[in-house]
């Protein structure tokens, strides 16, 4: 059994960068044994999250979020659609998550990331399950016109916790959303009234006067924890994600309800106590995220 011992000696002699590349699991576990993570965080702490308006000129609402190095840019564009016959009073939401090649060395132009459509679907399910948006509010003219909300989220830098950052940016984008005021033209199409001077358009043409913002009943916030042996490690970086294979994503909304508990398999089985710990960590995280988002919203209102 000479080999493991040899590598053990080698590990202590070589510098940390080399050991990180050659023996990633050992490097990682040596950190875990002293209750810290390679980027210096204590074991149970998540990275700091930043949120701000996205400054996308052509979008009706946009937000940029950063969790550690993971950066997401979300933009919402609203277009008009004819509602379906069985739901004449409801609009619709379409969520698309993109991972352009700039974000990660694993994504190539011809080979899109496998995880992108999965996260798209997960985001769509979470947004619909959380009851954040009432589709009936998106209706303009019953049976004839309703809003179609296109939410595009671009990952600009992928460093783990992609779903968390994407959901946070979606929540922020909906909070910053300003619905354009539209009026009905003679041909039956709806067009946006420009902000200045609606002198020649009479008030009764305006279809949604006064409904500039969506009422958001409760925002969902999430935290992904990696499970490795007996450790629960919230908010893994991409390096940690390659070492751990089991993840639990807990989504809670502001009223404390569980919106989604997503554990897609993985070698580590989750005990009930583990799940309870993850939910507790998510609750803690939620208060921080909510605070940052509220600050950003008030700052935007001041502007």
């Amino acid at each position: 059994m000479g080999l493991p011992n040899e590598s053990g000696d080698l590990l202590s002699k070589m510098d940390s960068d080399a050991s990180r590349r050659l023996f990633p699991l050992r490097f990682y576990e040596s950190h875990l044994s002293i209750s810290t993570r390679p980027d210096g965080r204590p074991l149970k702490s998540a990275r700091e999250a930043f949120v701000g308006p996205g400054d996308v000129a052509s979008a009706d609402g946009s937000a940029m979020t950063k969790i550690g190095s993971t950066t997401m840019l979300a933009a919402i564009k609203m277009e008009i659609m004819t509602p379906s016959a069985d739901k004449p009073d409801e609009g619709s939401i379409a969520v698309e998550f993109y991972m352009p090649p700039i974000c990660s060395p694993l994504v190539r132009p011809g080979r899109p990331a496998e995880i992108a459509p999965v996260i798209s679907k997960q985001l769509y399910d979470t947004i619909m399950s959380s009851g954040m948006i009432d589709l009936k509010e998106l209706s303009l003219i019953s049976g004839k016109a309703a809003w179609m909300v296109y939410l595009d989220i671009y990952c600009l830098d992928a460093d783990g916790a992609l779903f968390d950052a994407a959901l946070y940016s979606a929540a922020a984008a909906f909070s910053f959303l300003q619905i354009p005021v539209v009026s009905l033209s003679e041909e039956g199409r709806l067009t946006i009234i420009p902000e200045e001077g609606n002198g020649n358009k009479s008030d009764k043409d305006v279809v949604n006067k006064g409904k500039r913002k969506l009422t958001i009943s409760s925002l969902p916030f999430s935290l992904t924890c990696g499970l490795h042996k007996n450790y629960i490690l919230p908010d893994p970086t991409s390096e940690e994600e390659t070492l751990m294979e089991t993840f639990v994503t807990v989504v809670l909304n502001s009223s404390g309800h569980l919106v989604s508990l997503y554990k897609p398999g993985g070698p580590v089985l989750a005990q009930t106590s583990t799940i309870q710990d993850c939910i507790a960590l998510t609750r803690q995280r939620m208060t921080d995220l909510q605070k940052s988002l509220d600050e950003a919203i008030t700052e935007m209102k001041v502007d």
């Binding site: 569980l258 989604s260 508990l261 089985l269």
Partner: peptide, 22 residues
């Protein structure tokens, strides 16, 4: 016991309270 207590996968749709989930 660990094996019996464990959960391999969970995918939820729709909101529910934490107690209901358990």
């Amino acid at each position: 016991k660990q094996l019996e207590d464990g959960l391999v996968t969970s995918v939820t749709h729709g909101g529910m309270s934490v107690e209901d989930y358990f």
